[in-house]
């Protein structure tokens, strides 16, 4: 019965959190994200070896990488470096890019969407036509071209991904803002003499927050996958900085003989992207009133 009464009003943070806690899959996602984050933060203390260190006993006598074992838990790569240590440091790359690139994309998307949706007129038309234009770009080709223009470093890759990924957010925010701008309470505020900035920040943005949280979480998953793909193609984060994508890029020629070098980082990418998707999906169910009761 409590659920039915709660469903009436807008999602209140407390009840939203309580409903979120009841979802096992979202909790699993949370747990994985927490483990990866802790691993990334404490990588220097957890990692058994230096990620860059090419160890003499890291290769077999024939010069092949070592399979997972007692000393090297996840084996070693083609240069005799410890894979577990590289995966730990690679988590830093994925998370930094996931958070920074996606944060940037959200900011760009929200700014463009809110401006276009609130002001309409020619500003709105120009901004939304530009968004349509961006939608027509093959995203990966655009990202590769951009990455080739700026020699890729960690931050450049984050920027490139943000430049490609803001479009979806802009479209969703635009639709929502133009609906909000039509509502009575905004008209009332305007009649009362409230300035544009006050209306935007006090009345429009707070309504957008739940949606931005949902898109922000789901977007990290897209970002993590795009970074991995760019690095796998060799135009993302450059070696020796380890990233899960470029670990696969460096070792894929050898993958028939040493499949762990491809599938362990691959599983790491999948798990992280999956976790953000699970949490984002649960957040959408909990925060978006139109989705409620559709389980």
């Amino acid at each position: 019965m409590t659920d039915a009464t709660l469903a009436e009003g807008p999602a209140r943070p407390q009840s939203a959190l309580r409903r979120l806690m009841r979802r096992k899959l979202a909790l699993l996602g949370f747990a994985i994200i927490a483990i990866v984050t802790l691993g990334a933060i404490f990588a220097p203390w957890i990692a058994p070896f230096e990620p860059q260190e090419q160890m003499f006993d890291g290769l077999t006598l024939e010069g092949s990488p070592m399979p997972p074992g007692e000393k090297f838990w996840l084996g070693t790569d083609l240069l005799g470096r410890d894979l577990f240590s590289r995966i730990l440091y690679g988590a830093r790359t994925s998370l930094i890019i996931g958070v920074v690139a996606n944060g940037l994309a959200l900011i760009i998307g929200t700014l463009i969407g809110v401006t276009a949706g609130y002001f309409r007129g020619w500003i709105g038309a120009v901004l939304m036509r530009f968004t349509d234009l961006m939608m027509a770009f093959p995203a990966l080709l655009l990202a590769i071209c951009l990455a080739a223009i700026f020699t890729p470093s960690l931050w450049i890759v984050a920027m490139v991904i943000a430049l490609v990924n803001w479009v979806q957010t802009a479209r969703v925010v635009f639709t929502e803002t133009s609906a909000l701008a039509e509502r009575e309470f905004v008209a009332a505020e305007r009649t009362l003499g409230a300035g544009t900035l006050r209306i935007l920040f006090r009345h429009i943005l707070p309504h957008l927050v739940p949606m931005i949280i949902v898109w922000g979480t789901l977007g990290i998953s897209t970002t993590v996958l795009l970074e991995a793909t760019l690095s796998y193609l060799g135009v993302g984060v450059q070696p020796p900085t380890p990233s899960w994508g470029n670990i696969i890029f460096e070792n894929q020629t050898y993958f028939q003989a040493a499949p762990w070098l491809v599938f362990i980082p691959g599983a790491a990418i999948l798990l992280l992207a999956l976790s953000f998707n699970l949490v984002g999906d649960a957040l959408r169910d909990v925060l978006d009133p139109t989705q409620r009761g559709r389980e």
Binding site: S221, L225, A228, T229, Y232, G245, I248, Q252, F255, Q256, P259, V262, F263, G266, A267, I269, L270, A273, L274, N277
Partner: peptide, 16 residues
């Protein structure tokens, strides 16, 4: 899982 899997990993896994 299908939505979260990087395509190059899926490709390499199927190949393997």
């Amino acid at each position: 899982v299908a939505v979260s899997a990087p395509q190059f990993v899926v490709g390499l896994l199927l190949l393997y």
